[in-house]
Structure formats: structure tokens, C-alpha cells
Design a binder for these strands. Structure first.
Lengths: 149, 149
DNA sequence: CTAAATGCAAAACGTTTGCTTCGGT
DNA sequence: ACCGAAGCAAACGTTTTGCATTTAG
């Protein structure tokens, strides 16, 4: 386990994969690294692009399969930014939500214990146990001089 | 029953189409009626099915085109229940959200001025004007006798 | 009469899958 | 040696589109 090889990072994702008993192939290692390095919310095509840069021998199907696996394992989260593609981010422990800039497509994150609590209560009042929340805001910058697109 | 003509309904949607200067074709009239009559959140295929019952000469492509038009005109709203298809509902004036029963797929609606207000403020604090909110809760019934699936 | 809307079938799009080969454990 | 995983391409389900024809205004 403790190798002095210094392969750039422990890569939390790799460790989690091992824990889940998943085969750690070279492709998955690369994809995991890409996701760990990402500080944005890449879609599958983009993950594929970045992974290909690390290792050309990766197919799009493998990325799709890996993303689904990672998602099922709970180590990445799919987010829907409204462009028809699935975007992903590494699953940190926190419950956070997204605000999408409709002009640039960039994604900001935020948390709100208040909102989370109210939603929890609303679900309860409706007779449900809350098992998931999908919340995304869409906005335009307020300050910036009105530049189109 | 207040209507002498008895064309079944004034169909708010039809009126709105006229106001927007859209051609009111037979197909659109039928689709508009289907949407006005719906009290659920049909997907396009379902709208097509219902419209076909009223008038067999409607193609799926026309339904898709009509839905997009209606959506752009702001007279219907697209909602994403997480099944990969677009679902629609007539746009009433209110800001409401959805709770999807993950077991049955049924959709309940709710409103929360509190949540709306907090989200508005959050967007503002992040430097954005809120132009849209996508909020959906996913839950399982709490009370019902523990029947799986 | 003219521009816009329809129908049909084909294409586009993101995603999944069957099958054979490959590689981790 | 096994069995899961990769690669490729073909299949998929949803949505869009090109084009010839019809129709509302």
C-alpha cells in the first residue's frame, strides 16, 4: 500500500475505488485523476478529452462506463447544468448547489443550510422522505456592463 | 357552460397564441387543448398520444415543434423529472416546484415563498440576477406500509 | 398570395451495449 | 486462470431538421 513512488497524489478517488473492490485499471486511474484535478464541472466529452491527454488509449465508452461506476459508487456526482449533457464533479461530503451563469455557462457553487432544512420539512409535510434534491439557479451577472453572449 | 359556442373551453393557451401572433393551426389548437386539460406532467410522447386521440393527423415532429414554440412563448413550462424526457405543464403564473416520487414517478407540486426568497438573495449575494430556478425534490412515501417498489 | 406550419423520413445528439480481446488480481 | 474491464462500432431513445406540400392570415 504505502509505496514511495509519489505518483503525483494519493487521489482520493483511487483509494475509494479500491475500498469498493473495484478493479483499478490504468484507464480508471487516469479518469480518477482527471476528476480529482478538475475544479470545474466537466461533461463526459471533456473528461474524455482530458483523460486522452494523459493517456491516448482511452475510449469514450470507457469514460462513460467509468463515470457511471463512479456515480453508483457515490464517489462522483452528476450535475445537470441544463445543456443536455451530464456534467460531473468529485463527490465531496457537503450538500451544495449550483448557480449557472446563463451567458457563460460557468458554474458557481453555494450551500444553504436554511434551504436544505426547509426542503426537508416540505418533503416531510407532503408525506415523503427526502432522498434527493436537485437545485440549480440560473442567473446573469448584475454588475458587468451589458455585453451580449 | 357560460360559453354559447361550446367549443369546450376558451383554452387560455389559444388566446395566448393569438396574442403572441402565432398561427393557430388545427394541430396547435389540439395540442393546446391537451395541455390545458392535463392536470399532470406529460412528456412529449404522451402529449402526442393524447393529441392523436383528438385528431389523428398530427405528427410527433409537430408536437415537438409546438412544445418548443409554446415554451419559448412562455405559455408552457418544461420540467425535468429525471427520466431523460422533457415533461411539460401549462405555465400558470405561480412559482412552484416539484417533488417526484422516485418509486412511482408521480409528481407533486409545492410552493415556498421562503425558499424562493432565500434563493433570490443567494443569487444576489453571488453577484447574479436570478433568471431561473430549477428545483426538484425526490422522495419516497413515509407513511405507506413498507411495501417495496 | 405569402410566409409560416405540417408530415415524413433522415439525421443529430448524448449515451448505452454486444462482442471480442485484454489485463488485474 | 479467472472474470471483470476495455475497445470498437453498432444500437439506442429522444429530439431536431431538410424538404416538399399544405394552410392560416
Amino acid at each position: 500500500m504505502s509505496q514511495a513512488q509519489a505518483k503525483e497524489e494519493p487521489t482520493r478517488l483511487e483509494r475509494l475505488c479500491a475500498e469498493k473492490g473495484l478493479k483499478m485499471t490504468e484507464q480508471r486511474r487516469v479518469i480518477a485523476r482527471v476528476l480529482s484535478e478538475a475544479d470545474d464541472h466537466p461533461d463526459v466529452e471533456e473528461v474524455y478529452r482530458r483523460a486522452s491527454a494523459h493517456d491516448a488509449g482511452i475510449s469514450l465508452a470507457t469514460v462513460y462506463r467509468a463515470m457511471r461506476m463512479f456515480e453508483d459508487a457515490g464517489i462522483v456526482e452528476r450535475i445537470d447544468v441544463g445543456d443536455g449533457r451530464a456534467h460531473y464533479e468529485e463527490a465531496r461530503g457537503d450538500q451544495h448547489h449550483h448557480l449557472i451563469d446563463v451567458e457563460t455557462g460557468s458554474v458557481a457553487e453555494f450551500t444553504s443550510a436554511d434551504v436544505d432544512a426547509i426542503l426537508q420539512r416540505i418533503a416531510r409535510d407532503l408525506g415523503y422522505s427526502l432522498v434527493g434534491t436537485r437545485l440549480a439557479l440560473f442567473g446573469v451577472r448584475r454588475d458587468k456592463p451589458a455585453e451580449e453572449r
